[in-house]
Write a protein that binds this DNA or RNA. Structure first.
Lengths: 149, 149
DNA sequence: ATGCAAGTTGAAGTCAACTTCAAGTCAAGG
DNA sequence: CCTTGACTTGAAGTTGACTTCAACTTGCAT
């Protein structure tokens, strides 16, 4: 397959595919300078990247789970710890969602005065603050964790 | 309170507090050029920012829910739609978490050959790809300021 | 054989949310 | 009064994941 076919098939832009290849996340059969050709297995590789991203791995972390030839090579410990992080995150998001739903539905004039909202606010916010602090601890130099998108 | 007290109390660095003030997310009582003083209500304001961030709002979106004087002014429609997004996101994260847990525990030699893993991979990844495509649709020029994240 | 869309490259630009820097100001202790 | 350390400002730098650009090459259709 050529790059535009893969792009069309997966929805991943050609520029991203080139970028992923440079980062060692996917493999192509190209001689340098000529047009890339992708084996069908690139679809699996892209799926793995997508899964990793969805799980909150950086591209470097995803690559660390691939062998030189592009096959997966799983670091169980990293995955298990990411799963735990996900658990926590899911719980926090659920609390936030409750907060939003309440805020959107609650008829109180000012939410500053609605006790239910204040309670959810405090819970969700303190969770968020804790999380911020944890992240700062992991990066003691103070470099920003670039968005918890 | 002065800026370092607020920082200590909330865990939000002083630099961030200044940044938030410049962005109109929190208010201070300072005459320009002198030292900032914060009213206790700044803690509520910060909680609201944290909640918004946790819910996936951009700082601009958070600010759009504040009146000029810094009191919350909630856009129910935006909140409700963010709650729906959160629902979706939570479901996707749950699927991803299942995938991770399985990958971390599954004894198959190569995960490429484990059918359970392949199924979860496909599900989680396709969800992730769909999401990517949706986000790209919302940003057609690539220059739009309204981050959906 | 030729035109031109589609591909190639490295380098530079973008974005959000901060952080860091340089240069200067203020306030309290000694 | 003077030092010192916490504070002030605007400007510039950082991060990760891409995208865009400029300047060429390729390869299919005519």
């Amino acid at each position: 397959m050529d790059i535009s076919q893969v792009a069309k098939l997966t929805g991943v832009p050609a520029s991203t595919l080139r970028y992923y290849e440079k980062r060692g996340l996917i493999t192509s059969l190209a001689a340098r300078g000529t047009r890339r050709r992708f084996a069908p297995s690139v679809l699996d590789q892209l799926a793995l990247v997508a899964l990793g991203q969805a799980a909150g791995l950086s591209l470097d972390e995803v690559r660390s789970m691939l062998t030189a030839n592009g096959r997966p090579n799983i670091n169980r410990q990293l995955l298990a710890s990411k799963a735990i992080e996900l658990d926590t995150r899911i719980r926090q998001l659920s609390a936030v969602r409750r907060g939003l739903r309440h805020a959107a539905a609650c008829p109180a004039r000012s939410h500053a005065e609605c006790p239910t909202f204040r309670k959810l606010l405090k819970a969700a916010a303190s969770g968020a603050l804790d999380r911020q602090q944890r992240e700062r601890k992991l990066k003691p130099t103070g470099k920003s964790p670039a968005g918890t998108r």
